[in-house]
């Protein structure tokens, strides 16, 4: 059974898209990531034009992260103050990222620069998480207390002025590194075209020592706000948001996010970090392999954007 997409201008198998929404929504709810880094390539693979895929994934991510965030909120695993401070940096970072993207495009080879930095960033974050969580799991096996040491409260960047208390996250740190992290996420999101959840969650866990589950919940709030804004901007600037595609994705996504959030809340924190580490690393490997292996077809055809 197919449904015709009015903006993408092609028919698409409705149950395939629904299943994709469900699967990615599960991962999204479990790890607090938007899932754009998985969904966008999947959509492009099914034949949706890249511009429409990128834009239509935004409302989908807004819906599934809202659905997931509500569950974390009910469990008290959501720090709105932290999300607010991160957002102020995030919005500035998005603007800077858009400008950086335009500048990179003027120089040319922006595609290559993006993919190399993407693979390196994800590779580094993924490996670090994997190593750390494996150590934590081993420690738990030996019967030692499984808690992550929290020496980070003494890190230099946490002792900067403008100290704030983030009650839900149980941290008392300077607002400056929080704004800085938000800025970096916004910048990366705009340049790499991803929500940045899979970088934000590790950053909150390891840099600010926010509890794993609260990091996930807070990341969902950030994803929700940035993706809602991105939807409006994409619709106005490019006119490439396909409401029908987004709606079909979202039905599956919101369901999946619920099951994912529940699974994520019941998992042990170090196991959750281990799984997220594997996910991030495998995306890095995928991007890296694409860069160095010979493509099946050395030619590709793209349609030029309509003026």
């Amino acid at each position: 059974m197919t449904i015709y997409l009015p903006i993408a201008e092609l028919p698409i198998a409705i149950f395939t898209v629904f299943a994709m929404g469900l699967a990615v929504g599960f991962i999204s709810g479990m790890f607090g990531v938007g899932g754009g880094f998985l969904m966008t390539p999947l959509l492009i693979f099914t034949g949706v034009p890249p511009a429409v895929a990128v834009a239509s994934v935004s409302p989908y991510m807004a819906a599934s992260s809202f659905s997931g965030a509500l569950s974390y909120w009910r469990k008290g695993m959501l720090d709105l103050t932290l999300a607010g401070v991160l957002l102020t940096g995030g919005l500035a970072g998005t603007v800077a990222g858009v400008l950086l993207f335009l500048w990179l495009r003027m120089i040319g080879q922006v595609d290559l620069a993006i993919r190399i930095s993407y693979a390196m960033l994800l590779g580094a974050v993924g490996s670090l998480m994997l190593v750390e969580s494996l150590k934590a799991i081993a420690r738990a096996r030996r019967g030692l207390p499984p808690t992550v040491r929290r020496p980070g409260t003494r890190a230099w960047f946490m002792r900067l002025p403008l100290k704030m208390r983030f009650r839900r996250s149980r941290i008392y740190v300077s607002a400056l590194p929080v704004v800085g992290i938000g800025f970096m996420i916004g910048l990366l999101g705009a340049v790499l075209g991803v929500g940045g959840g899979f970088i934000l969650v590790p950053a909150l866990i390891y840099l600010l020592r926010v509890p794993t589950q609260t990091s996930v919940g807070t990341s969902l709030v950030l994803t929700l706000v940035t993706m809602a804004v991105a939807t409006v901007l994409h619709a106005e600037a490019n006119g490439t948001v396909d409401a029908v595609l987004a709606f079909v994705l979202m039905i599956g996504g919101t369901m999946g996010a619920q099951f994912g959030a529940r699974t994520g809340q019941t998992l042990k924190a170090e196991h959750l970090r281990f799984l997220l580490g594997i996910l991030v690393l495998s995306v890095a490997v995928r991007v890296g392999v694409d860069l160095v292996s010979r493509p099946a077809d050395t030619f590709a055809v793209t349609q030029e954007a309509q003026p």
């Binding site: 409302p59 989908y60 807004a62 819906a63 599934s64 992260s65 809202f66 659905s67 509500l70 569950s71 009910r74 469990k75 929700l224 809602a228 804004v229 939807t231 409006v232 901007l233 994409h234 619709a235 106005e236 600037a237 006119g239 948001v241 409401a243 987004a246 709606f247 979202m250 039905i251 996504g253 919101t254 369901m255 996010a257 619920q258 099951f259 959030a261 529940r262 809340q265």
Partner: peptide, 26 residues
């Protein structure tokens, strides 16, 4: 484009909310 974008964004929040109510697992 603006109105369409707002409508889609609001719609997605509504779907997210409904999804949370209907498939609530906690």
């Amino acid at each position: 484009g603006w109105l369409y974008g707002f409508a889609v964004a609001l719609g997605s929040l509504a779907v997210g909310f409904m999804g949370n109510l209907l498939f609530r697992r906690d």
